[in-house]
């Protein structure tokens, strides 16, 4: 949980100076419940109840011969349909999201590292540069990528000119373009938490690591990386989760053969008559898979402070 807090806590001041002090937890009392009530109520009505409703829908059965009309039931048929017909899209979602997360990590780490230890007075400016692109709508930026990667665009042109790519080759409408788009869109979510945890680390410890191991790579593996692990963990979650559920990149940069589970859910909801139960079943399966992955992942790599 504090893993995700990294994104918000970047640059927080007023830290405890003399080491940790006991948490001043007040006992129960009516104040606690009054403070909790509105927020919890909100989450119950607009998160828990919709989820329950979605679960109910995913178990509904259709009136035979009346597409779009269902009755309440406990029918796992939609789950069977979801898992048999849309398995490729499901696998693709996890594969694309996983690849994008890995790529984002590779790109984000040097940037976060440079911001934390090398940037000096440029640190603030670099921070702004990481956040700023956020404010141009992500749909606009994704469309810009479509233009950049287009068949007549500069990237394809250059690659063809260099004969790296055959003259019939293209980037858009491929899985590569989708992964590139996902990587791009969620990169700041990877940079910020890693930066936050590196910034907290004492550069002297890394220097000491350099003394002990001499080899830069070993220092990184034994000292720097473990110290930034909470940030890496938060960053990978913040990248992987939205990437796995995304459909905008696949829609704008891909083709029919690169559809992800998000595209299926969206089209089942909006374009297929009677698609609600299957879409609901797909949503639930996606959420279950992601939550399972998250818990395994956090257990495996996280410290106690995480969940």
């Amino acid at each position: 949980m504090t893993a995700l807090a990294h994104i918000g806590s970047t640059g927080a001041g007023a830290q405890t100076p003399g080491g940790p002090a006991p948490e001043p937890t007040k006992k129960g009392g009516i104040t606690a419940y009054l403070l909790l009530l509105p927020g919890v109520l909100w989450l119950l009505v607009f998160f828990v109840a919709p989820m329950a409703q979605l679960a109910a829908v995913s178990l509904q059965s259709q009136f035979p011969g009346y597409p779009g009309y269902y009755y309440r039931d406990v029918n796992f048929g939609s789950y069977v349909t979801a898992m048999t017909e849309y398995l490729p899209q499901f696998g693709r979602s996890l594969l694309f999201a996983g690849s994008a997360t890995l790529l984002a990590f590779v790109l984000a780490y040097p940037l976060a590292y440079a911001m934390a230890f090398k940037a000096g007075k440029w640190r603030g400016l670099m921070m702004i540069c990481v956040i700023a692109p956020f404010f141009t709508s992500f749909i606009l930026r994704t469309i810009a990528w479509r233009q950049i990667l287009a068949d007549e665009g500069p990237v394809v042109g250059a690659l063809k000119w260099l004969h790296v790519m055959p003259s019939s080759g293209r980037i858009t409408e491929t899985g590569f373009a989708v992964v590139a788009g996902l990587t791009y869109n969620f990169l700041p979510f990877m940079v910020l938490p890693i930066y936050a945890s590196l910034e907290r680390a004492d550069p002297k410890i890394i220097e000491a690591g350099g003394d002990l191991y001499a080899n830069g790579l070993t220092t990184f593996r034994r000292v720097t990386l473990p110290m930034s692990m909470p940030g890496v963990l938060a960053g990978t979650l913040l990248t992987f989760i939205p990437a796995a559920g995304d459909y905008v990149n696949a829609e704008l940069l891909g083709s029919d053969s690169t559809k992800m589970v998000g595209n299926v859910i969206e089209s089942q909801f909006f374009k297929v008559l009677g698609g609600f139960p299957v879409a609901a079943a797909l949503s639930f399966t996606l959420m279950a898979v992601i939550l399972a992955l998250v818990f395994v992942y956090v257990r495996r790599y996280g410290t106690e402070e995480l969940l």
């Binding site: 949980m1 419940y33 989820m51 979650l237």
Partner: peptide, 28 residues
């Protein structure tokens, strides 16, 4: 700041929406 029954559940209730893909939130 407060110790009360169900604090763990409260933390969980706040955390899970963040771990839920937007499309699932939207669909529900």
């Amino acid at each position: 700041r407060h110790k009360f029954k169900g604090r763990g559940a409260g933390n969980m209730l706040v955390f899970i929406p963040m771990a839920t893909p937007e499309i699932v939130l939207g669909a529900s």
